[in-house]
């Protein structure tokens, strides 16, 4: 059994099936990308995995079936989602935002150590620790959202469009961070519209098209696939 396995998951919005029979497996330590066009159902898939959306089908993680679990219980099991649009608490300070991530955390010592680690990882956040989240730039907010998710010490990190709305130089920086996080051993499932970056930063990938998975394979080979190149990498 895989470390993480989504089995024939479907998500409905009223009468519309936004996600149909999706099957995704992620092995421990892997970074897997989920790419596709706008509205293909990538974010819905990720939100359903986190427990934010009702779904049919099963979610297996680390030997347990999470299907019936609510959002906060899935966090407890080790799944953290960095939501689309970052979801930073605008009226909480940077430090408070980070501490929210450690809400379920164990000891005060661990929490302090993790906070220290995050500030080392993101020096920008340390400078702004007493500012409220709402005053940060988009890139800083994305760092904060990732840092906050890491404070929960997740075993599986779900990232929803981390590059959205950021300047190209900031996008590079965020992906550097993501690769760094992956190196520390955290398993990552990444949803991203920027297909090239996503494929370059992952080992395997799934391609999603109007609610269904259309292709899967090693990211390297997908980068070479004429179909992917034509549809998602803007080449003919």
């Amino acid at each position: 059994m895989s470390f993480f396995h989504v089995k024939s998951m479907s998500v409905r919005y009223g009468g519309i099936r936004a996600v149909r029979d999706v099957d995704i497996k992620v092995n421990e330590g892997e970074t897997v990308a989920l790419i596709g066009a706008n509205g293909a159902g990538k974010s819905s898939t990720l939100n359903a995995i986190a427990g934010l959306l009702e779904h049919t089908g099963d979610v297996y993680f680390d030997g347990a079936n999470l299907t019936a679990q609510p959002v906060f219980a899935r966090v407890k099991c080790g799944i953290s989602l960095v939501p689309e649009g970052r979801g930073v608490f605008g009226r909480l300070t940077v430090e408070e935002n980070l501490l929210m991530g450690a809400y379920l955390g164990s000891s005060q010592q661990d929490q302090d150590a993790d906070l220290h680690k995050m500030f080392e990882f993101f020096p920008r956040l340390k400078e702004r620790r007493r500012q409220t989240g709402g005053t940060l730039s988009g890139g800083e907010q994305q760092m904060l959202a990732i840092g906050r998710a890491l404070m929960a010490r997740p075993k599986l990190l779900l990232l929803d469009e981390p590059s959205m709305g950021l300047a190209p130089i900031m996008v590079e920086k965020i992906f550097e961070v993501i690769r760094g996080v992956s190196k520390t051993g955290v398993t990552i499932l990444l949803v991203e519209q920027n297909a090239r970056l996503a494929l370059e930063s992952s080992q395997r990938a799934y391609v999603m098209e109007s609610g269904e998975l259309s292709m899967t394979g090693e990211s390297r080979s997908l980068l070479q696939s004429p179909k992917v190149r034509a549809a998602y990498l803007g080449e003919s």
């Binding site: 986190a50 934010l52 906060f72 979801g87 608490f89 009226r91 909480l92 929210m100 991530g101 809400y103």
Partner: peptide, 24 residues
């Protein structure tokens, strides 16, 4: 306090608060 932080977070966004592991 932690409870107070959770209350403030929940009042900003119940959805994101849930993602922090808070039982909203």
């Amino acid at each position: 306090t932690k409870l107070g932080r959770a209350m403030r977070a929940t009042s900003e966004s119940q959805r994101v608060a849930g993602l922090m592991g808070i039982n909203v």
